[in-house]
């Protein structure tokens, strides 16, 4: 297990914890936005938003427990490309891109990161993260279902949104390479876990194996 009190760990944790808190905040905002855009599912989407807020509070308490101050400035800069793309899509009423960014990319990224974090987390954070990751699978399922129900009409737009946004995820991950390693997580394992969750979601939505392999690896090699 890592030395949770070491300076190296705490410095890395400050950025990673910041990212996680910001990610949950973004997720909350994004679901509230989606609720406005999709009135017939507003109740359920607001429920998801509320869960994300609870996750955020959980992760804030993880930082407090280790007496680490999350680096929120870094975290907001970290998320800004994805954040901006979501805002742009929302302003244009592009529901499909909004779903791809929040319900597929962000949820799968959370699932992968949390899955890989759990075995190396401190006891306090492990319990919280285990609870959170269960919720994230439900969230993934919501987006998956909606996109799957509209598959023929939305297929092309999913591919466009994937091409625009997935490469951003690889770049984001690269920025925190050293931090990830310092809290004993394995970047390779995160990428693999991401591709598993994301690929499974794409397959459930209706993409063929060949399409799944192309879409989920998009931009990875050049990252």
């Amino acid at each position: 297990a890592p030395d949770y009190s070491s300076t190296v760990y705490r410095q890395a944790y400050s950025r990673i914890n910041g990212i996680v808190i910001e990610g949950e905040q973004e997720a909350n905002d994004n679901y509230l936005k989606l609720a406005e855009m999709l009135p017939e599912a507003a109740d359920e989407l607001r429920k998801l938003a509320k869960m994300e807020l609870r996750h955020m509070k959980g992760f804030q308490s993880c930082g407090k427990n280790l007496q680490v101050e999350p680096d929120m400035e870094f975290a907001r800069a970290f998320f800004s490309p994805l954040h901006n793309n979501f805002q742009k899509a929302a302003a244009a009423g592009d529901l499909v891109t909004c779903f791809v960014i929040q319900s597929l990319i962000i949820e799968c990224f959370a699932i992968a990161a949390y899955n890989i974090y759990i075995p190396v987390a401190d006891d306090f954070a492990r319990k919280i993260t285990e609870g959170v990751v269960k919720d994230e699978y439900l969230h993934l399922n919501f987006g998956e279902r909606w996109l799957g129900e509209h598959f023929p009409e939305v297929k092309a737009q999913i591919e466009v949104a994937n091409a625009q946004n997935l490469p951003l995820v690889w770049q984001m991950l690269q920025q925190v390479d050293a931090d990830v390693e310092n809290i004993h997580m394995d970047r390779e394992a995160i990428v693999e876990d991401f591709m598993i969750a994301y690929g499974e979601a794409l397959a459930n939505i209706g993409f063929s194996t060949r399409e799944v392999m192309r879409l989920s690896a998009q931009g990875l090699r050049t990252a």
Partner: peptide
Amino acid sequence: EYADSDLEFWCMAPPQ
């Protein structure tokens, strides 16, 4: 994507 990639990539590739 898989054909042009090195071992590094295969180490991250998910089962299919």
